[in-house]
Amino acid sequence: MRYCALILLLTLSGCSTLPTPPKDQQQSLSAADTLLAQADTKAANGEIQQAIAVLERAVRLQPRNAQAWLRLAELYLSQGEYRKAEQFAGRAEQFAAGDRTLIRRSKIVIKQAHEGQRGRD
């Protein structure tokens, strides 16, 4: 069940990010994007804790990187850590700077986190 949620999330996150740039442009990936991509790979391999560490590194480089906060929220959601998922999604929303897709995704995580928490009570 947990894995299904994870796969779903990864697909979702795949949709809203830019397609992989062609080879010759890959070098111009920004530092934060490089880390986001790394985190995705780790998460896909089931290395969740490692993926979280990589995303925190991205947050350190760019504390206002809403994508990084959102991915953290999504990973926590996939782990059933609903309280954390909700809080990190809140930070993502805070830094979304009008990015509608991002705000929508943050709200989805918050809603799912609430549902998860309720399911537990």
Partner: peptide, 9 residues
């Protein structure tokens, strides 16, 4: 051990 980032509104 890793001391993970925590945040709470």
């Amino acid at each position: 051990q890793r001391y993970a980032l925590e945040t709470e509104k």
